[in-house]
Design a protein around this nucleic acid. Structure first.
Lengths: 213, 213
DNA sequence: GTCTATAATGTGATAGAC
DNA sequence: GTCTATCACATTATAGAC
């Protein structure tokens, strides 16, 4: 906290973090320059250093922030698609498609996630853990809770909800993530839909309730 | 070819590519310096530039080379573990564990794969395609062929061997790859084994022959 | 091997805006 | 008065040419 904050107007700080998110996502940590971030934020470089101690602090700060925001976005998708089940297969597929889009679409937080994954060897262990906890791990937990509820209603047969959530994510999301290199290379919408549908097929073979076939 | 080759002893060239693989893998593309590569190869920087036009050419060259070598390694594992099936579940699990180790173990080609994934936005499309074709896509095809053979012998029920190979890889490998950030963060052996076993469980629920239970 | 050109981070100093 | 923009600056590191 003490290192990241300081004096200054909050609006400036917001402009800086938004610019940093964009530039780090576009260029990656090493290539991104503080000059470029300052320019994109419309402030002077001095002002950036007034708000953030150094480049690394700025990067880790926006990484954590962005991680939490993406988790909230995904939580909304979980609620929207898996809150009230109409057609389980369809709802799961829709969720898979929307999540892939939310994480991997170009302009968004996904680009920063790519930068973080690229820099992971240079990120302090405790910060990395905090990022995981605010991001991927939290989303997995949200999904696991939902699966547990669905199992309670007899729609799924699930022993270990955390495992089911992870395997659902692997089958419906990681194939797209890998193919698009976490959003760096575009994947056509129809391809995303196809992969999601096939992933849900496989998932339901593992965890589907026999009644629903 | 013309850009990557030149005069000079082949032994020097080999030393350079080996050093470049190590340094690029350790530091990533941007951070790696040509000085460090020359030093690690035990040659002068001038010699490096005699063999490779520039930094980018050197990187792309070792990327392709390493991709092919890793594919061969994995092909050996496919043959060893899935050539003669003794206990299908056990053989699949052993293969999954060995592959994860081969790709993600620290000193190996896996580190370079991480660097490539980090740089993917700056890699020319045709080179990226060649890298995919020599690496991940080729390995997937090898595995698909093997699954098709196993299906022919009644050990698996497989409609689409390519899909089965991809889903096997997702279930048994990508969970570890993601958790370790493609080898940047170590994952305990027992955790790798646990994930592999759970992945094979799921895979056999989808594709297992009913006879074998 | 040496040298040049370039570009990066982070630091002052000063003068102006809210 | 406090925060800001502008400019200049020292330091360091790099790619690549001679």
């Amino acid at each position: 906290m003490a290192a990241t904050s300081g004096a200054g107007r909050p609006e400036k700080r917001k402009a800086i973090t938004r610019a940093a998110t964009a530039v780090f996502g576009r260029e990656g940590y090493v290539r991104a320059s503080m000059d470029a971030i300052a320019a994109e934020a419309g402030v002077s470089k001095r002002t950036v250093y007034n708000h953030f101690a150094d480049k690394e602090t700025l990067f880790l700060s926006v990484a954590l922030e962005s991680s939490g925001e993406l988790t909230e976005k995904i939580r909304d998708l979980v609620d929207r698609h898996l809150g009230k089940i109409v057609d389980l297969r369809q709802d799961l597929t829709d969720f898979a498609v929307d999540r892939a889009r939310a994480v991997l679409s170009a302009g968004d937080h996904g680009a920063l996630g790519r930068a973080i994954r690229a820099e992971v060897a240079n990120i302090p262990a405790d910060v990395l853990e905090a990022w995981l906890e605010a991001g991927p791990v939290a989303s997995l937990r949200d999904l696991a809770e939902r699966f547990e509820a669905l199992a309670g209603r007899g729609l799924l047969v699930v022993d270990d909800p955390a495992l089911a959530a992870e395997q659902f994510t692997l089958l419906t999301f990681h194939g797209v993530a890998e193919r698009s290199f976490w959003g760096a290379v575009p994947v056509p919408d129809e391809e995303v839909g196809r992969i999601a549908a096939l992933g849900v097929d496989a998932f339901l073979k593992i965890y589907g309730a026999p009644a629903a076939g």
